[in-house]
Write a protein that binds this DNA or RNA. Structure first.
Lengths: 190, 190
DNA sequence: ACCTGAACACCGTTCAAGT
DNA sequence: ACCTGAACACCGTTCAAGT
């Protein structure tokens, strides 16, 4: 007599993501997830290979969401406006999902890391726009400069590393403006 | 009859840092540290409050080292040269000490985090130079832009996030050049 | 004063046994 | 086909007992 399924992979991933946000990565235990979905811990292994695989599924779920958010921010008319809008969407996602965002940038064991293709997809929009601003020859280093800045800014903000006071929103605006100027100037130089 | 000390706090921190680099943060267990210094795990608690405190001591040790390295890179003659040199020193430290560097930027429980003052000290040099380039009015946001970019770039490099090929060294050079241009231009505008 | 074994509560994971 | 309790190896940490 087959036992009816009492949970699902989607439910497990969603519960895990919620626990990650409220309890952090150390709080994301198989026991906590099992409790949340109403099952005993060993049962989780019917649907996930283990904790590392669950972490990875959560990261991939978040990467897809981040990619969709940055895509929505891009309108395709004015590259500079798009750059600002994508950066804002990126930051908004990280602030709304600090646990998941940290997972996307953390140095984790290989098996825990999200599919590289998904991570690439999450920076697709910003790469395209950076290329439009800096010119095709500099598209890749320009995109890397913007993505690195955005990742670093948001990461420091989440880590509470901006401790000297001042207006963080203004610093974000200053940064994206200066970067947009710099990429456009670098492109014109050729 | 007092037992002679068989290890020291310095030795424990050094062993912990070495294990962090070779085995990662999950591999940094009290057992592994105890083995490395030739003592049983409970003995470590005579010198460290617990694993979180040890992680914090390691992070603070690394922050001091990073601060010293960026200080050495700054000569105080040409701000633009200094900016490039400091960024290079920053990146070199992170590549030589990826485990410790990740600790400095990771989102960790409050008790594990290094003393904010030490973290601030590690970015002191870059803040001063960014101020010289961008002008006193923009010193803080300018410094934050540079530090965010450097943190983000190095973090992505360590996480293996640059997967589209191309020359990573060139991208680093491109970024620092564009940022130096942009800060100087932003300052002149006033 | 420092070190140790034993113990406790907690992990992740496996697996035979249940339905 | 899915779920479970029991078990195993491993954590961090405490503490009484040793020297």
């Amino acid at each position: 007599v087959p036992t009816p399924a009492r949970t699902s992979l989607d439910e497990i991933v969603a519960a895990g993501r919620s626990i990650l946000e409220s309890e952090g990565l150390e709080g994301l235990t198989m026991q906590a997830v099992a409790d949340a979905v109403g099952v005993r811990a060993p049962s989780l292994y019917k649907r996930v290979r283990g904790r590392g695989a669950l972490v990875r599924l959560i990261a991939e779920d978040a990467a897809r969401e981040l990619g969709a958010a940055t895509d929505r921010a891009r309108r395709g008319q004015d590259p500079r406006r798009d750059l600002v809008a994508i950066a804002a969407a990126f930051r908004a996602f990280a602030r709304a999902n600090p646990g998941a965002y940290s997972l996307l940038v953390a140095r984790l064991p290989e098996e825990w890391r999200p599919d590289p293709a998904l991570n690439a997809r999450a920076s697709e929009a910003i790469i395209a726009v950076a290329g439009e601003l800096a010119g095709p020859a500099d598209a890749l280093p320009a995109a890397r400069t913007v993505v690195a800045w955005a990742n670093g800014f948001v990461g420091m903000e989440l880590a509470g590393a901006f401790r000297l006071g001042g207006d963080i929103d203004a610093a974000f605006g200053y940064g994206i403006d200066r970067l947009a100027d710099a990429l456009a100037a670098g492109g014109r130089r050729r």
